[in-house]
Write a protein that binds this DNA or RNA. Structure first.
Lengths: 207, 207, 207, 207
DNA sequence: GATGAATGAGATTTCATTCAT
DNA sequence: AATGAATGAAATCTCATTCAT
C-alpha cells in the first residue's frame, strides 16, 4: 500500500513536472493535454486519474510553488535580521529560483495574475505581498525604513521590480549569467531597499 | 471616397474598442470572436473584413498603444528636465493610463509579455525599456543618478514597479482612488528614483 | 441604348472569360467569386448584375461552349462526307479546341460530367453523344461501318478516347506540340474509326 | 492489442466505406464531414482519429483503389497471353468494377483528375497508363499490334474509351444490365483493340 | 452600372474529457 | 493503474450573396 502510494505519488510528480515543461514551452492555453501526457510518457487518459482537469494542473503547480514560497518567506520573517536584510533575502529567494527551475518561473511569470484571475489565486498571491508588507511595516516601526510610504504600495513596488527582472530573463532580454543574477539581486536591494531606507530618500533630502 | 474611408475607419475603431472591452472582461484566449462582434454590434464576418484574425486584433491593440506610448516617452526625452523629473513623467504616463482606459490597461497587463512572446512583440517592448534606459544613462552621465548601476537593470526595475501597481489595480488588490493613484506615482518616484539618486543610496551610505 | 447594351455585353464577356481562367486555374469549387472579380478587374458585387450565382457562371460557360459544339457538329452532319470522314472532323473539332482555348478545355474536362451532374447538364451532354451516334448509325446503314455494334456504345467510346487525350494534355501528361496534336487526331481516327470500320475489325478478320 | 488493432482497423474501414458512399452521393466538395460521420454512425471527431482531414479520406480511397488496380494489372502483365487478350482483361477489370462497387466507381470517375490535380495523384494515374502502354509495346514488338502508333497515345485512347463507358453508367445514360456490361466489354475490345490490330487498320487498308 | 461593406449560414477542425477495456 | 478510442461542444474562419450608396 505504501509502495503503491509512493509509486503513485511519483507518477503524479512526473506528470506535474511534464506539465510545467509544456506550459513553459507553449503557454497554458496553447498547451494540449495530449502534449503533457506525451512529455510525461503516459497515456493522456491517465492524467485524469491524478488531476481533475487541465486547469487543476496549473492550479496545483501554482499552489505548491506558492506555498513553498510562503514557507520560505515565513522563515525569513522569523529571523531577527533588520528589515532591509530580510528584504534582501526575499529578493534572493525569488531571483535565484530562475536558475533553479527556469521552466517553473516561466510558467509563473506568464500565467499567474493573468487569465481568469481566479479569486482564490488572487488571495494566495496576496499572502506573498502581505509577507513583504509585514517586513516593511516592522522596518518602519523600528525606524529602519522611512515611515511616509504605505507598506502596501511598497511591497508591490518591491515585488514588481523583482518579477520584471525575472520576466527579462524569461524573455531572454536580460543576461542571466551567474554574475548578472547576483548583480540583479544587488541592484534590486540597492534601488528599492535603498529608496525605502530612512536616510536614503529623495523626499527626506528634498524636505 | 473620403466619406467611405472615414466611415470605414470608424467601424474599424468600433471593432477594436469592442475587442479591448471583451479581452479585458474575459482574457484573450477565453474571448470568442463572436463576443467581440456582438459587443461591436456587427456580424462576426465583418471582423475579418478589417482584421485577418483574432490574433491580429490583439496585435493591433498592442501595437497602436505601444507606439503612442513610445511617442509620449519621446516627448519626455526631448524635454530638458533632469532625469529624475523625466522618470517621474514616465511613471505618470503609465500610471495615469489606468484611469483613462482601464480596459486597455487590463488587456496590456494580462496579455503582453506573456502568451506566445512573439519576437516582434518583444522587440517593441524592448523599445520602451530602452527609452527609460537612455534617461537613466543620461542621468548617470550628468551625475544626477548613481553610476554604479546598470541602466538596463534599472530600467527593468523601474518599469516593473510601475507595472505591478497597475496589476494591483487590475486585480482589485490596490486602491485606485484619485488620491491613491497620486500616492502611487509619488511612491514609485520616491522609492525607485530615490533609490537611484546619487546621495540617496544605501550603498553610498554604507560605503 | 444599343451602345450601353454593347458595353454591357462586353463586360459580361469579360467576366465570363475571367471565370474560365480562374476555374481553369483552381477548379470550380476552390475558386472564389472574389478571385473571378479580381481577375476581371471589377468589384465582386458586379458579378451579380450579370449572373445570378457562381454556379450560373459555370453553367453559362458550359452551355455556350456546348451549343457552339453542337452547331459545329450539325454542320459536319450536314456535309455529304462518309461517316468515317465525319468522325474525323468531330475528332478534329474537339482536339483542336485544346490549342485554341486551353483554359476552356481545362474547365470542361474537369467540371463537366462530374460534380453535381445536374440533370439539365446531362441532357445537353447527351445531345453531343447523339450527334456522334447518328453519324455512326448512318455509317452502319450505308454499310460503311460495321453493324454489329451499338451506335450508342460506339459514340461513348469514341468521345471517351478523345476526351482522355484532352485530359492528358490538361494534366501535362501527354505532349501537346503541333505535331502531337495532329498525331493524336490521326491516332484516334485510326484506332477507333479503324476499329469501327467494316473490313477493319479484328473480329471479322479472325473469323 | 491485436484485438484492438483489428477493431481499430475495422472502424477505419467503416469510416472509409461511409466516405465512399457519401462522396458518391454528393460529390467530394458538397459532402460534409458530418455526413460521413453520420453515415458511419460515429461522432465526427472520430474521423480525425483515423484521418488527418477530409482530403485525406478521398486521398486514401483513391490510393488504395489505385494500388489494387495496379496489382491486378501486374498479374495480367505477368500472364503469357497475347497483348490483345491482356487488353481485354484490363478492360474487363475496369468495367466489371462498376457492378462490384458502383459508389467507388462514381467517386473515382468524378473526383480523379479534378480538384487540385495533385502531382502525387497524377503520378499514380500515370502508373496505370504505363501498364497499358507496356502491353501495347509488347504487342507491337511481337507483331501482334500495329507498330505505327505511339503506345502512349494508344493507352490513353484505350483507357478513355473504358472510362467513358463507366461515366455513362455513372450518369445513368448507358444501360448497365449484365448483358450490357458484357456488350460494353466486347465493344471496347472490338473497337479499340480491333483498331489497334495489325491487319485491321483503316490506314493500312487505305494505303 | 458599379462598388465594397455587411451579413450569416455553415464548414472543418481541435481538444478536453469520458469511459470501456 | 493504465490505455486510447470515442465523444461532441465549441471556435475560428470562409465566402457566396445582398444591398445601401
Amino acid at each position: 500500500m505504501t509502495d503503491r502510494s509512493i509509486a503513485s505519488e511519483e507518477k503524479r510528480r512526473l506528470i506535474l513536472a511534464a506539465a510545467v515543461r509544456v506550459f513553459a514551452r507553449s503557454g497554458y492555453h496553447t498547451s494540449r493535454v495530449g502534449d503533457i501526457a506525451e512529455e510525461a510518457g503516459v497515456a493522456h487518459g491517465l492524467l485524469y486519474h491524478y488531476f481533475a482537469s487541465k486547469e487543476e494542473l496549473l492550479e496545483t503547480v501554482f499552489r505548491e510553488t506558492w506555498s513553498e514560497l510562503l514557507e520560505a518567506f515565513a522563515r525569513v520573517e522569523e529571523s531577527q535580521e533588520p528589515a532591509s536584510e530580510q528584504l534582501r533575502q526575499v529578493a534572493a529567494i525569488l531571483l535565484r529560483s530562475w536558475r533553479r527551475d527556469p521552466d517553473l518561473v516561466r510558467v509563473l511569470v506568464r500565467e499567474v495574475g493573468r487569465s481568469q484571475t481566479l479569486p482564490s489565486r488572487v488571495e494566495e498571491i496576496g499572502q506573498v505581498f502581505r509577507a513583504i508588507e509585514r517586513i516593511v511595516e516592522r522596518g518602519q516601526a523600528e525606524g529602519e525604513l522611512r515611515g511616509d510610504l504605505e507598506p502596501r504600495l511598497a511591497s508591490w513596488i518591491f515585488y514588481g521590480a523583482i518579477e520584471e527582472i525575472l520576466t527579462g530573463w524569461v524573455l531572454g532580454q536580460l543576461d542571466d549569467s551567474d554574475e548578472e543574477v547576483a548583480a540583479a539581486e544587488r541592484a534590486v536591494v540597492d534601488v528599492v531597499v535603498g529608496g525605502l531606507t530612512v536616510s536614503g530618500t529623495a523626499a527626506s533630502r528634498r524636505g
